[in-house]
Structure formats: structure tokens, C-alpha cells
Computed example of a mutant assay.
Amino acid sequence: MKHDQLLAFEAIVLTGTFRQAAERLHKSQSAVSHAIRLLEEELELTLFSRDEYRPRLTAEGEVFYREATRVLGQMRALQATAARLRAREEAELCLAVTATLPLDILLPVLERTGQAYPATHIRLSTEMMGGPIARLMEGAADLAIATLDGVPLEEVETRKIAEVVIRPVAARGLARQLGPGPHPLQEMQALPQIVVAGTGGPDSSQSRDLLPGGRKWTVSDFAAKRQVILAGLGWGGMPEHLIRRDLEAGTLVPLQVEGFPPRRSELFALRRRDQAPGPVAASLWALLTEAGQ
């Protein structure tokens, strides 16, 4: 039994097909099929049923998969340990965070990291919607902070670090025109809902908290969204910490929209399981974990 055979076995289970497993492992499909055939011959077990279009784990395969994932997890931990032992400080550390993150949670962590590793250039990018996880999975970020929406949990470690409240609001004048809530969907559909474009690619547009059948205007970031809403041109959900002063001043007013209550959004630190962190990334991860406790 070899490590690459277990990796091929895991990849087939996670992706659902031999072809996609081969793409994931950057190998030919015939190499993956050969590895599984040798593994089954050695074990004298049939791990996959090939009766359907997609390979399906047999009863024996289910049990073997549970144990294989434990072994692979230990192997990855050993590889990460070895990498840390031979690693030097990273020249650059890239952190991709969702724009809904209150930065006052992150800044003390970055300060401590900068003091401990002054030679490392810390690159912080603020992303929208699926942007943080996209940067992490494409290798453009060492760590990310985002919600778990669309996150491949089998490929990513997570640590909860914060919660934010997303609250529907409108400018004072528009709220006065609407009158007291709750406001039915039919009433709100006639007004532009201001949403933020995602930075994760064509499939990362906002889908959560989107009014069905309503008008929609799209902006690039929360600063622009706030300005458009303050101008009375529409309404939308905003992270509460970004508009606290507006709410206190009364220039923005919370709305009661049918089916759209204020939402509590959980944010997590994320890192890939298949990549060994360097000493700076490992330290930053530990500090983020500590900050979330």
C-alpha cells in the first residue's frame, strides 16, 4: 500500500469520478485507474462499484475510506512538521479577507506578526463574496478569512474568529417615504436593491439576501454601496459595524423587510490542508485561532 494510491483513492471519493480525480492530482486518468487497481488487488477488496456512471464506494470501501482519511491526515501533519523544520521565514505572506470583516479584530494580530517577523512582507487584500476562498484555492493567498459559503470543507481547515450582523437599511428620506415596517416584498421589489459584485470569478455574484424578482444595482465595494444608499437611490444589507455612526446619526435607518431579517454571519480563518504553512503563516494562524476564542 503506497501513499499515492491512498491519495488517488481519496481524490476519487472527493471528486466523484476518475477523470476529475486525475485532474486534481495532475495525473493521467490511466495512472489513477492503475493505482486503484493495484490497491484493490493488494487489499483483496473491491473498493468501488463500477455498475453506475460514477464510481460508488462499496460497504468495504466506506470503512476503508474512514481509516484512509485518518492516515492521510497524519501524513499531512508529518509533512507540515517537516516543512516547518526546514523552512525559513516567508519573504511574503498573503492574506485574503472578506470585506465584511471588522478590521479591528485583525489589526492587533497583524501587529504582533509584523513585530515577530519584520522581514516578511504582509500583503492584505480585501475581497467580496467568494473572493477570499477563490484566492486561497488558486494559491494566491496563504490564509483567508470568510464565511463558509462555497468552501470545500474537505480541503480546508477552519477556525471561527468573528460574527458580524448584516442589517437591511435605507437613507432617512427613503425610509420616511416607505413608512413604518414591516415592508412586504411587493413594495421592496419596486426599489433598487444595492448589492456588491463578487471578486471570486463569474460564479461569485451575490445570491444570499437577494430579493427575488426585484430591481438590482451592483457596485464594486461596501464604500460605494453605503454612498449609494445614503443618497437615497436604493436599499440594501450592510455590515452593522460599517454603518454604526450612520445609524447613530439617523442618516441610515434599519428596515423591516418581509423575509429579510438582520442576519448574523459567522467568519472563519481558512487554510488549505494540502499545503504546509511556513513559520509566519503558522504563527498568524495560531494568533487568529487565539483571537477567535
Rank of each mutant, 00 (worst) to 15 (best):
Q186E: 13
G131I: 09
L178S: 10
L247H: 04
Y65F: 15
R172L: 08
V156C: 09
L45T: 08
T17Q: 04
Q20M: 07
R226K: 12
T100M: 15
L242P: 08
I122F: 06
G131M: 05
S283P: 01
R50N: 12
R88Y: 00
R167N: 05
R112D: 14
A286C: 05
M75V: 13
T100F: 04
E67Y: 12
K216L: 13
R66K: 15
L25N: 05
G181T: 01
Q115I: 10
P212T: 02
F260S: 03
E67D: 11
R24D: 11
P212L: 04
Q177Y: 04
P254D: 07
R84C: 03
Q206M: 10
G214Y: 01
E111Y: 04
W285R: 02
P279T: 03
Q189C: 09
E187Q: 14
A224W: 09
D51T: 10
V169W: 11
L255Y: 01
P182M: 09
E42G: 06
T126E: 05
P102W: 04
D104H: 13
M129Y: 07
P184Y: 05
V32D: 05
M75I: 15
I36R: 09
L143G: 04
S49Y: 01
Q186D: 15
I12Q: 10
L38V: 11
W235P: 00
L78M: 13
H183K: 06
G179M: 07
I145Y: 02
P192M: 11
A231M: 07
T113H: 03
L45P: 02
E40W: 01
H3C: 03
A231G: 03
G181K: 02
M188N: 07
V13S: 03
G200L: 02
Q193Y: 01
D104V: 08
P239R: 05
R244K: 11
G232I: 03
Q256L: 14
T126H: 00
E67H: 14
L143Y: 03
R84Q: 15
Q256V: 05
R263M: 12
L57H: 01
P277A: 08
V169Q: 02
E155M: 08
R54Q: 14
A190K: 14
S28T: 05
G173K: 14
R208G: 09
R112S: 13
I36W: 09
R37E: 13
S265T: 15
R172W: 00
G139N: 12
S220A: 15
L7N: 10
V71K: 11
L191N: 06
A282M: 06
R271G: 13
A190S: 04
L174W: 10
R244Y: 00
W217G: 10
H121K: 13
L101Y: 04
E111A: 15
G200S: 08
A171K: 03
P184D: 12
R54A: 10
G173S: 10
